[in-house]
């Protein structure tokens, strides 16, 4: 059995949540809400739906806190819950991954670059990533999102997905190739538009 890492304060907070400590839950929520929303957003492609899923995930976490055993890093445990919840909801048919609408494509002009050309590239890159995510299998999408946007190691992702590290390596590679392909399509489109102008 794995031993709880001393630095995993989240696991200790979760144990307190199991004892009914709402303040401990609020601390955990504040620490991890952005990650869970980001993950769910990448999964379903809509911020509104992502927040609905995040709400359900956190409430599920709270109601099941008594059965929590700190046998794994808390973040891995949380993402196992989040992944299963998102997969189940998508498979139930309540949520299908949507390509982000124009209104929901985030303004990346400040984060990606200051020059107009850079900003344009950021928005288009986001669109290319959205298309690639849309075409991925659910497990590829989950593994890719945990790796690229949450910075999780392959071992942690394997634990969250209940898969082998070799399988995760393959999922992430295939998913990354799909993004590269969409970026290449985008670049080819831009070149064609540029040569027409």
């Amino acid at each position: 059995m794995k031993v709880l890492p001393a630095e995993d304060q989240d696991a200790r907070l979760m144990e307190r949540v199991g004892g009914g400590d709402k303040a401990a839950f609020a601390t955990l929520f504040d620490r991890h809400q952005a990650s869970v929303v980001r993950f769910a957003w990448r999964f379903v492609g809509s911020q509104g739906r992502a927040e609905e899923l995040a709400q359900e995930i956190f409430l599920k976490l709270y109601r099941s806190a008594k059965s929590y055993r700190p046998s794994a890093k808390f973040k891995t445990f949380l993402f196992r819950v989040a992944t299963n919840h998102c997969l189940n909801e998508v498979r139930r048919g309540d949520y299908q991954r949507m390509e982000p609408s124009k209104e929901e494509q985030h303004d990346t002009s400040e984060a990606v670059g200051q020059r107009p050309d850079d900003a344009l590239e950021g928005k288009q890159l986001e669109a290319a990533v959205g298309k690639a995510l849309h075409g991925m299998s659910e497990r590829e999408r989950a593994a890719f999102s945990m790796c690229r946007f949450e910075g999780m190691a392959y071992r942690e992702i394997a634990d969250a997905l209940d898969a082998s590290e070799a399988a995760v390596k393959s999922l992430i590679h295939r998913a990354t190739l799909q993004v590269v392909k969409q970026v290449e399509v985008l670049r080819a489109g831009l070149s064609a538009t540029g040569s027409e102008a």
Binding site: F29, E51, A111, G122, R148
Partner: peptide, 18 residues
């Protein structure tokens, strides 16, 4: 891809969960 920005959760989410 790793430098792409992500949405920030709304205050409504915090209220709804708590």
């Amino acid at each position: 891809v790793e430098a792409l920005p992500s949405p920030q959760p709304s205050q409504a989410l915090r209220r709804a969960v708590l």
